[in-house]
Nucleic acid binder design. Structure first.
Lengths: 236, 236
DNA sequence: GCGTGTCGTGACACATTCGTCACAATGCGG
DNA sequence: CCGCATTGTGACGAATGTGTCACGACACGC
C-alpha cells in the first residue's frame, strides 16, 4: 500500500484515477492547484506523484522542475499525464527526469500498472543507504550510526570498520581482510592499528561493544545477538 | 554506464537501438534467439533487458515468464517491445511484471530515455553506494571520489559537501541548505566555513572545480556540464 | 566609475584523529 | 601451573582536518 498524489484539474479524471488506485490498495491524495504541489509533496510525502501537465494558470512542466529542484521533493517518482502525444513532448518530459509519460486518453488500469511497476523498483531505494543489523542502524548517506535509535559519534575509520564488520554479521573477518577493506593494505602488514581501532569502537559503543567478538588467531566478528556467542565460537 | 541486453529478431531494429544506447554511454549485448535469453541474462548480468515480443519460433511473453520464474534473473528490469498496440496487450505485459511497454513504431530516443528513467530507480538498489554525475563518481560505501576514473582524495566534510551538491545537479543549493545538510546547522548561522570548504573542494578537484558554480546571493550549484553555465545563471 | 556587499583566498590556532609503542591482561597448549 | 602468543589498553607525537579571521578580488546597483 503506497501513497499517491494526484495533481489534476479535471475532477472526472482525478476521480477515475483515484478509484482505480484505491482498488489496487493505494492511498490517494488529490489536488487541483499546481502551485500547491510542492507543499503537498512535502506535507504528505507521497511515494509517487501523478502530474497532469495541463493545469490552469500555469505550466505543469515548471511545476515539475520545481519539484526536482528542491532536495525534499527531488526523489519522488513522477508520472506525467498529458493530451499532447507528440514524441518531442514525451522526450522532453522524460529528459527532465520524469519516470513515465502517459498520453490521454489512457487506460486507468494501465496507469495503475505503470505506477505499480515504478513503485516495485523504488520502494527499496529510500532505505538502500541504510543498513540495519540487530539494534544497530548504519546510515551511509549521512555517515551516522545509531544504536537503539541513539546516535553514536564515530570517526571515518571507525565507521568504515564497523560497516565492514556489520556487512556480514555472523561472518568472521580476518585481520588481513579488515586491513584491506578499511585501510587499503594490500599485503599482510603486521600492525596493531586494527586492535586499537577495535578498542576505540568498543569504547564508543559502550555496552553494545559486546557485539564485536574477538576470534583469536583470526580476526573479528560482528554478532547481532552476542548471547549466541558460544554457538559461533568456531575457528575459521 | 550500464549494460543492456537487447533481444530482437530484426537486425535493423537491434542496430538502431544499440546505436542510440551506446551514444548514451551504455554497453550493449544483442541476441536474436529467444531461447538464449535466460542464459544470456545469467551470463552477462545486464542491468536491463529490452525484449521484443515478436520472436520467431516462440512467444516473447513466455520467454519473459521464464525470466521472472528464475531467481537468478527475476530482478532484472525488462522493457517490452511490440507491434501490438492494443491496450489489453499492454496491460497484460505490465501485469506480468514488465517495467515498461513500448509499441512500434517508437522513437529510439524515447526508448533510451525510458531506459534511463528505469535505471535511475534501479541502479541504486544494487549499486546504492555509487553516484555518477558527469565525469564524477562518488562511492559512498568506500567514501571515495573519482574524476574521470582518477581518485580524488577528500575529507569527510568535503565528501559530504560534494555529495549534497552532486545529489541533484543543475539544482541550486542555498547556503542554509548546505549548512543544514552537511554541518547540521538548523538555524541560519553566519559563517564563512562553507566558503572555505568550497574553496578546498575546488582546489582538490583542480580543473574540475569549474563544475561548482557560485550563485551569488544564494548558494552553490553543481553542473555536470559547466559550459552550460550561462544558460543556468538564473536566480532562485 | 564608485561604493557596498558578497565571495575567494591564505594564514593561523585549535581540535580531532591516527598509528605506534610499551606494557598489562588474557587465552591456549603443554 | 608455566610459558608463549595474541589481544587489550593507555599514552604519546605526528599528521590531518576544521573553523575563524583579515584582506584582496570581484560583481552588482546606483
Amino acid at each position: 500500500m503506497s501513497k499517491i498524489l494526484v495533481v489534476d484539474d479535471e475532477p472526472d479524471i482525478s476521480e477515475l484515477i483515484t478509484l482505480h488506485l484505491m482498488r489496487e490498495g493505494h492511498e490517494c491524495v488529490c489536488i487541483t492547484n499546481g502551485l500547491q504541489v510542492l507543499n503537498a509533496v512535502i506535507e504528505h510525502e507521497p511515494d509517487l506523484v501523478v502530474l497532469d501537465l495541463m493545469l490552469p494558470g500555469q505550466d505543469g512542466m515548471s511545476v515539475f522542475k520545481r519539484l526536482r529542484a528542491d532536495s525534499r521533493t527531488r526523489g519522488v517518482p513522477v508520472i506525467m499525464l498529458t493530451a499532447r502525444a507528440q514524441v518531442t513532448d514525451k522526450i522532453n518530459g522524460l529528459e527532465l527526469g520524469a519516470d513515465d509519460y502517459l498520453t490521454k486518453p489512457f487506460s486507468p488500469r494501465e496507469l495503475a500498472l505503470r505506477i505499480t511497476a515504478i513503485l516495485r523498483r523504488t520502494k527499496k531505494v529510500t532505505h538502500s543507504s541504510e543498513v540495519r543489523t540487530g539494534p544497530f542502524l548504519l546510515d551511509r548517506k549521512n555517515m551516522k550510526c545509531f544504536h537503539n535509535d541513539q546516535p553514536v559519534d564515530l570517526t571515518t575509520t571507525e565507521f568504515k570498520l564497523l560497516a565492514v564488520l556489520m556487512e556480514n554479521d555472523t561472518a568472521v573477518h580476518t585481520r588481513a581482510e579488515l586491513l584491506r577493506e578499511v585501510w587499503g593494505y594490500s599485503d599482510d602488514v603486521a600492525t596493531r592499528t586494527l586492535d586499537t581501532h577495535i578498542k576505540r569502537l568498543r569504547e564508543k559503543l559502550g555496552d553494545a561493544g559486546r557485539h564485536i567478538i574477538t576470534v583469536r588467531g583470526t580476526g573479528y566478528q560482528f554478532l547481532a545477538d552476542p548471547s549466541a556467542q558460544e554457538a559461533a565460537n568456531v575457528r575459521a
